[in-house]
């Protein structure tokens, strides 16, 4: 099997829990223990109340398709073989908006407002990417 050629996240103290949970097939967002604000990507203080008392909350993995685009240009060599590929924008039922990929849907087979749910695709031993499919 060839080496994974696409960009990988750089893990740090802030984002490590997200990727560890994703490896266990759990989608999580950062949540403030003081005011309940949920957000992603993670922040060093809560954007709502500036508290540092934050944790991670596993979410339903369900959401709504806000928009999507189709890349016909590879900004990284690792994506050249995937062209054209779709990138979607999902508003989770819990609030935060994520960028991801829409998997297994035929061109023209989905539209803005469709319900989607998370799946997980292994990239490397360390990294598993949350992606989305149309909700059953």
């Amino acid at each position: 099997m060839s080496a994974y050629a696409k960009p990988l996240p750089k893990l740090d103290t802030l984002n490590r829990p997200f990727w560890e949970l994703a490896r266990d097939h759990k989608l999580a967002v950062q949540a403030c223990a003081d005011c309940g604000d949920r957000h992603f990507p993670p922040t060093p203080v809560c954007p709502g109340c500036l508290s540092k008392n934050q944790g991670w909350e596993v979410v339903s993995g369900r959401g709504t398709l806000l928009s999507w685009v189709t890349f016909h240009r590879a900004y990284w060599g690792g994506f050249a073989g995937d062209l054209p590929y779709d990138v979607c924008l999902v508003e989770l039922d819990e609030g935060p908006v994520l960028v991801s990929n829409l998997v297994g849907a035929a061109e023209g087979g989905f539209q803005v407002g469709d319900r989607v749910e998370v799946i997980f695709e292994r990239a490397t031993d360390e990294i598993t990417l949350p992606k989305f499919v149309l909700a059953r």
Binding site: K6, P7, L8, P9, N15, P41, L66, S67, W68, V69, F71, Y75, W76, F79, D82, Y85, V87, L89, V99, S100, N101, Q111, V112, G113, A123, I127, L129, K131
Partner: peptide, 26 residues
């Protein structure tokens, strides 16, 4: 570099494409 690079989302043009798709739909 951006937090969304692993999903292949990059460049300001992509964000505007995302917005325009939504404008088309709405």
């Amino acid at each position: 570099p951006n937090v969304w690079d692993p999903w292949g989302y990059t460049s300001p043009g992509a964000a505007h494409a995302m917005m325009f798709r939504r404008h088309m739909a709405l």
